[in-house]
Amino acid sequence: MSQPDVLHQAFELGFTYTRSTGPVVGRFLTELKQRNIVGIKGSDGRVIVPPMEYDPDTAEELSEFVDVGQEGEIVSYAWVKEPREAHPFDKPFAWAMILLDGADVPMIHCVAADSEDAVSTGARVKAVWAEETIGFITDIRCFERV
């Protein structure tokens, strides 16, 4: 029996989900559309960003929204040397945990920088907004050094 050619074919499987945001994440995204970032106050007074629907300690429903700053501090980061197709940049960038001014919990987002040396723990960064905001996390295009 002769060996045939290796046959292969591209195949894409798509799960075209739409997700309901609920009132709290919906409010967060609605505020993003207006270029504003909100958190929510937990039972112990912590400001949580992005806001959660329920208190992480007591599980009670949360509703006290708080505006937070558009600048903050890098708490930790990972430098992405080789971005993949789904990543927000086609050149190297950082994923970072960013503690926004007025928040008590860091939020993950991407940081644009020319090199890994330009990113460090404790560095101050500010939000860069997309040209058009639609009510999605990518309305904040990225953070960059202040």
């Binding site: 591209a10 195949f11 894409e12 499987l13 798509g14 799960f15 075209t16 989900y17 739409t18 997700r19 309901s20 945001t21 919906g26 995204l29 609605t30 559309k33 009510g135 999605f136």
Partner: peptide, 12 residues
């Protein structure tokens, strides 16, 4: 905002 599109595409 009450909903978002969150598709996942798996390329084989």
């Amino acid at each position: 905002i009450t909903g978002i599109e969150a598709p996942i595409y798996l390329k084989y």
